[in-house]
């Protein structure tokens, strides 16, 4: 899957609402069908990234809590 990731972002240290603000800005920089991978440290992303993809209509490909951070992959659908 990693070969389809067009943009990798570092959201470490960012708190609400910046992860979704930065994600909304970044999604415009990739083509439809391409994916963004991001790593964050704010636990709020576990709820907010799925909510953001539901409201915007993009696809959540992965969301995982890791030892020290959270990783997610979002695919631009439109």
């Amino acid at each position: 899957m990693s070969e389809n990731i067009a943009l990798a972002l570092d959201f470490k240290g960012l708190l609400c609402p910046m992860p979704i603000v930065k994600l909304a800005q970044a999604i415009k920089r990739v083509q439809v069908g391409e994916m963004i991978e991001a790593v964050a440290t704010d636990a709020g992303v576990m709820a907010d990234i799925p909510a953001w993809t539901r409201s915007t209509g993009h696809e959540l490909m992965a969301l995982e809590k890791r030892e020290k951070d959270f990783r997610f992959v979002v695919k631009r659908l439109k």
Binding site: P17, I20, V21, L23, Q25, A51, W52, S55, T56
Partner: peptide, 12 residues
Amino acid sequence: YIIATGAAAAGM
């Protein structure tokens, strides 16, 4: 401003 940016980021 947090609500406004969050909503705008979600396409509202």
